[in-house]
Design a protein around this nucleic acid. Structure first.
Length: 557
DNA sequence: AATATGCCCAACCGCGCAGGC
DNA sequence: TGCCTGCGCGGTTGGGCATAT
């Protein structure tokens, strides 16, 4: 293995320079190393690769700065490490990403953001650089096409997963590297997560990484690509009570020809856009630009729009735009605190009960990473705070041990824990629940994985959920609510086809956003009135919500 | 066929963190 | 305690290739 022909040599180096002494000596480009030797830059040659491989064979990885000393290679340690990690180390998987890998990347990015190295840990044989390049390419491609970075259901999956994990084990399971999960027995393995996710013994798929497994199962069950996720029944239950207060325009006017606003606007991540036709029929082939998309649920989409709800106006702070819209600057706790993917609880909390300074200061990110889960976590915290304003918010990072310690939990905590009861239908994520009621789309690449819940559970789950959260709701409401969140109802209902009603919807939509964002932000976000109504999605299609029509805070850099 | 444009990706750069001294 | 070094990560750059005009 003295010579490792590699693509980069062929691609990056002019033929006349390959293995040429001048390049080896780095006299065309390079930097001095301690004033002694010029370190070469630029593409690696096969000879250099061979030297490096030989060195690593003998000495192992690490101590990269010693490579130059031991081998005479005119490369800095950094460059050696990079070359090894990205091209020379064994078991590297070359070639295009498989659809499975692409989906995983999307999910991981929705959860982690630009944590390429961490993502790479979940993709054996792939490097952070590869993933990063792939994602950057994807961003460009989809932005150019006006497509959302994340399929709405991915956003929602993340939302649901984190609503579970945040309250049961938000003890930084995301910080765990895969190998840590594999090793098991670690102090802070999120038992609750495992309980929830493995309760039905359904983790044959990717059992190593609970978060990923669930995510994948969710996407699998939902048929990942074809439907925007319907609303979770749990959310559906609580919404009517609160949002009617939140959005004055939602009474009467809205209910006439379209879903009640409270069924439309204040959805957890992504749903708002979806309800307004911002979501898309998602093509699993993320590399393809021929998505049958219909909207710009910007990746943030799911989040981008939502981000602006709170970040820009309710709580001052800057968004770190290079982050996926699902995420926010790590250093600005206010931002990430505020920029949720708009779980309705959070929105309502802000509208009805703006967070106090003390509250904010108490809210320390569980992962200090500004990730969606943290946002969702805070959403619940704030929601709890709203209901118990006098109670000191003890956030939350409920460790598994704390969970086991019932008496230590606050009332709010207990409530949340109750909802996470693994044996209760509510203990499952809403997506989980709904997936069972959603016909699988053929061709789902994950179809081979069985689902733990039988579809017949749906009704009981829904009723149970609503009973628990909103006992006053009548059966009619339940039925209405449930039906309202069916994809066909969301995407194909008459109100979407009624252009005049669409105008009303936009007005209501703007009203709502005005309330949430303040007028300035609302002015920035001007949905283009739907001009056609020939197609179900057309009226609210991408044209109405182009990328460049999003608030500036939502724009990709 | 020639040129322009965009895409892909390897490599570099700057920064931050952790450990050792 | 502060400095140095090694290392890793994320962002950016730039060259080659593919496609469009």
């Amino acid at each position: 293995m003295n010579s490792l022909p590699n693509d980069s040599d062929k691609r990056m180096i002019p033929k006349d320079q390959i293995d040429s002494p001048s390049i080896e000596e780095g006299n065309s480009s390079g930097s001095l190393n301690g004033g002694n030797q010029v370190l070469k830059k630029g593409p690696w040659t096969s000879a250099e690769d061979a030297i490096l491989v030989d060195y690593v064979k003998k000495h192992g990885e690490g101590n990269w700065n010693a490579v130059q000393k031991h081998t005479g290679l005119s490369r800095c340690g950094k460059s050696c490490r990079l070359r090894w990690a990205n091209h020379l180390r064994p078991n590297l998987k070359k070639g295009a990403f498989t659809p499975e890998e692409e989906q995983l990347i999307i999910e991981l990015h929705a959860k982690m953001g630009n944590k390429w190295a961490r993502m790479a840990a979940y993709l054996p044989g792939r490097t952070d650089n590869e993933i990063k390049n792939y994602w950057n390419t994807r961003i460009k491609r989809r932005q150019r096409a006006g497509l959302p970075l994340y399929p709405p259901n991915i956003c929602y999956q993340v939302s649901c997963e984190n609503q579970q994990s945040n309250h049961s084990s938000d003890y930084s399971y995301n910080e765990k590297q895969p190998d840590e999960f594999l090793q098991g027995g670690n102090l802070d393995i999120p038992d609750i997560v495992f309980d929830n996710y493995t309760n039905n013994g359904s983790l044959s798929y990717a059992p190593s990484f609970p978060d990923i497994a669930v995510s994948s199962i969710l996407s699998h069950r939902f048929g990942f690509q074809n439907y925007a996720l319907p609303n979770p029944p749990v959310c559906c239950v609580e919404r009517p009570v609160e949002t009617e207060h939140v959005v004055p325009a939602s009474n009467g006017t809205v209910n006439g020809g379209c879903p009640r606003l409270d069924n439309v606007i204040f959805e957890p991540s992504g749903k708002m856009q979806e309800s307004f036709g911002l979501s898309c029929l998602y093509d699993p082939d993320s590399s393809s630009d021929s998505l049958a998309h219909h909207g710009g649920a910007i990746p943030g989409s799911c989040a981008s729009l939502n981000d602006t709800f709170s970040a820009s106006s309710l709580i001052p702070g800057t968004l770190k735009l290079e982050l996926p819209s699902l995420q926010y600057t790590e250093t600005d706790s206010n931002s990430w605190l505020a920029c949720s993917s708009t779980p309705f609880d959070l929105v309502n909390t802000y509208v009805k009960s703006p967070p106090t300074a003390s509250l904010q200061t108490d809210c320390v990110s569980p992962r200090k990473s500004g990730l969606l889960e943290a946002l969702l976590h805070e959403a619940h915290v704030l929601s709890s705070a709203k209901k118990e304003p006098s109670e000191k918010i003890s956030i939350s990072f409920i460790t598994p041990a704390e969970l086991a310690d019932g008496p230590k939990l606050s009332i709010n905590d207990l409530k949340l824990v109750e909802h996470k009861d693994p044996v209760s239908p509510l203990g499952r994520s809403a997506a989980f629940v709904f997936n069972d009621g959603t016909p699988l789309i053929s061709g789902n690449l994950l179809d081979e994985f069985p689902h733990p819940l039988a579809p017949s559970n749906l009704d009981s789950i829904l009723v149970d959920a609503e009973h628990v959260s909103s006992p006053n709701l009548g059966e009619q409401d339940i039925s209405h609510c449930r039906d309202s969140f069916r994809p066909d109802a969301l995407l194909g209902s008459a109100w979407l086809e009624n252009s005049s009603q669409n105008a009303i919807d936009h007005s209501v939509f703007n009203d709502a956003i005005s309330i949430l964002l303040g007028q300035d932000m609302c002015n920035e976000y001007k949905p283009v009135p739907a001009e056609t109504s020939s197609g179900v999605m057309q009226g609210f299609g991408l044209d109405s919500y182009p990328w460049n029509n999003m608030p500036s805070a939502c724009q990709m850099p």
